[in-house]
Design a binder for these strands. Structure first.
Length: 553
RNA sequence: GCGCCUGUAGCUCAGUAGGAUAGAGCGAUUCCCUCCUAAGGAAUAGGCCCCCCGUUCGAUUCGGGGCAGGCGUACCA
């Protein structure tokens, strides 16, 4: 049960009735009850009286006082005991303090629901496909992919927790120009290993790993391809792409991000593309100009129309992508989420337009842009280019600071802020890393549990929890379901992190001030019950983020 | 030129339904282990919320115009 939501709804309804009593049939603004920024102002607060001053032409404090009387009366009838007090404060806020009984109810719920606490049995759940990383198999995963992987995985967890069906998909771009360049780059190094001068492709891949792949081929096949390198190009392409895709899979495995589906570009055939183009043509969204075929994306707010078939008869990259997205909808997904890097943001109106042209709702596709992470090493910003082979791989970061820290660092900022990732700091001062703060709270709770031994908590008397800090912790736990819900709505995993930090902070504060293990056996039980709830909440939250939770540190 | 993102403490960032004295971590300065893990707690210092105009009873938040940084702007993928 989601107490935070219930209390708000009840308050909003209560206020609405009270407002109606004053206003009669006049239209009134939406009533919003939310947690005030400063917790000293109460658990929930409404500024409705301030909003009504202009309409009623009355002093806001006066209005608030009138409302207060009516609200108290209504609440007492509906949910006796939930609200401890209602206060009117200058310049006219109405503040509510939830009762201790409310806090105890929260704790009982957490203990009962355990691992599912905070989840939702949403009735109008969706069939969601979330596509992310989808890196070309032309090199190991970079830090940019890493952030996308962490975000996509966490979002998938959160959306599942909210009752949706979620499928995680990796789209494999294993054909096309990039792969040709990759194959030729490897071929060049292969020939060089035999002292032959090949042609290094323009824009070829320069990373050391390319040479490594060439040497592997040399070891496995010796000089088999030296005589006729031209007819071996396909082999080098396929070998390189397969090899690198495997590396990508291993990187993701180490990062503990798994996919439900690996979808190869090859599954989209030429006839699929032809079909979708003729479908769009029937609908009037395709026209010919300058020898090329154009998609009228301007009909759907794109800034210009886009070419789908070039004048030389070749498809642009966009054409198979339309077919791919049609394929996604055909597989029964009613909501698509794509996670891309900022270099693709110009592509959003185009793909959204295509989805709409195919008859889908504007909201049935959502593209999230995850901003880059700038890596600092030795105090210097590192430039990122897969082509030049100058990049920090995800694996490098994981090996240096660990998977959990890496994931956490990627998630701890808003998606749309550029993230600074200081390798030296994460490495050398790993103890100062924020993820440890939360993990440490969890470890401390385990430690107390161990020391206390096995105690039956089923008859714990929660009313012994009287300290301000204890009630504050319980109330904070009560906000968890709401936090996850808004995290899912806004598609921002960061909300969960920020919440967990707050809860951990409240726990550490309590830990420093009070002892759980005391001679008072009844109090011990009550406090064990409380910290058990903290533990459940931390565990549920970190699980959503895909970060592990140690019992000992 | 146009589009997207960003601009809040020395640094990295919260503040995503317009509200009350603008917050956290790191860094700095103090305290706190006879005590369930000090990877912690308590406290102090540190701010023209980039600038200007507008909407509003009220703007860090919304709108317009600037300035600065990053990215994008192909019949590339």
């Amino acid at each position: 049960m989601d107490f935070s939501q219930i209390s708000e709804i009840i308050l909003e309804q209560g206020i609405k009735k009270a407002v109606k009593k004053i206003m009669g049939d006049q239209s009134c603004p939406d009533i919003i009850v939310g947690a005030p920024r400063d917790p000293a102002h109460g658990d929930l607060s409404s500024s409705i009286a301030l909003q009504l001053t202009k309409i009623l032409k009355k002093n806001p404090v006066q209005i608030a006082e009138t409302l207060k009387t009516d609200i108290i009366e209504l609440l007492d009838k509906k949910i006796p005991g939930l609200i401890e007090s209602v206060n009117v404060v200058n310049p006219g806020f109405i503040n509510f303090i939830l009762s201790k009984e409310y806090a105890y109810e929260v704790l009982k719920t957490v203990e009962k629901e355990g691992g599912s606490f905070g989840s939702s049995k949403n009735k109008d759940h969706h069939n969601i496909q979330i596509e992310f990383v989808s890196a070309n198999p032309t090199g190991p995963l970079t830090v940019a992919h890493g952030r996308q992987a962490a975000v996509g995985d966490a979002l998938a967890n959160i959306l599942k927790f909210m009752g949706n069906n979620v499928t995680k998909e990796f789209y494999i771009n294993d054909e096309g120009r990039q792969i040709n360049v990759l194959g030729d780059s490897i071929l060049y190094h292969y020939l060089a290993a035999f002292g032959k001068n090949g042609v290094f492709p323009e824009d070829g891949y320069q990373g050391e790993y390319i040479k490594g792949i060439a040497l592997r081929i040399k070891d496995e096949y010796n000089d088999k391809f030296v005589k006729d390198p031209q007819s071996s190009r396909d082999f080098f392409r396929k070998y390189g792409a397969d090899f690198l895709l495997n590396i990508i899979k291993e990187d993701l495995k180490q990062f503990k991000v798994d996919f439900d589906s690996w979808f190869s570009q090859k599954n989209i055939t030429k006839s699929d593309i032809d079909k979708v183009l003729s479908l769009l043509k029937e609908k009037g969204y395709i026209y010919q100009q300058d020898g090329a075929l154009w998609f009228k994306s301007t009909d759907f707010n794109d800034e210009k129309d886009r070419v789908v078939v070039k004048s030389d008869g070749q498809f642009t990259y966009f054409a198979p992508d339309i077919a791919y997205h049609k394929n996604k909808y055909e597989r029964g997904f009613d909501k698509l989420i794509n996670i891309w890097g900022p270099d693709h943001h110009g592509y959003i109106p185009r793909i959204t337009a295509a989805a709409q042209a195919l008859g889908h709702d504007h909201d049935a596709i959502k593209v999230l842009i995850v901003q880059l992470a700038t890596i600092y090493k030795n105090g210097q910003e590192l430039s990122m280019s897969t082509r030049k082979g100058e990049f920090i791989s995800l694996k490098e970061v994981m090996d240096e600071v660990g998977e959990d820290v890496t994931k956490f660092c990627f998630l701890m900022r808003n998606l749309d802020t550029h993230l600074d990732f200081d390798l030296d700091k994460a490495k050398e001062q790993s103890a100062d890393n924020p993820v440890y703060y939360i993990q440490y709270a969890h470890a401390r709770i385990w430690s107390i549990h161990e020391k206390a031994g096995a105690i039956d908590l089923s008859k714990a008397d929660l009313s012994l929890l009287k300290e301000e800090e204890e009630i504050a912790i319980a109330k904070t736990i009560g906000v968890f379901p709401k936090t996850v819900r808004s995290s899912a709505e806004k598609l921002e995993p960061f909300f969960v992190i920020s919440y967990l930090n707050e809860l951990a902070s409240k726990f550490h504060n309590f830990y420093g001030k009070y002892k759980v293990i005391t001679d008072d056996n009844e109090l011990l039980k009550a406090r064990l019950f409380l910290i058990d709830c903290v533990k459940i909440c931390l565990a549920n939250g970190l699980k959503l983020l895909g970060v592990s939770l140690p019992k000992k540190m």
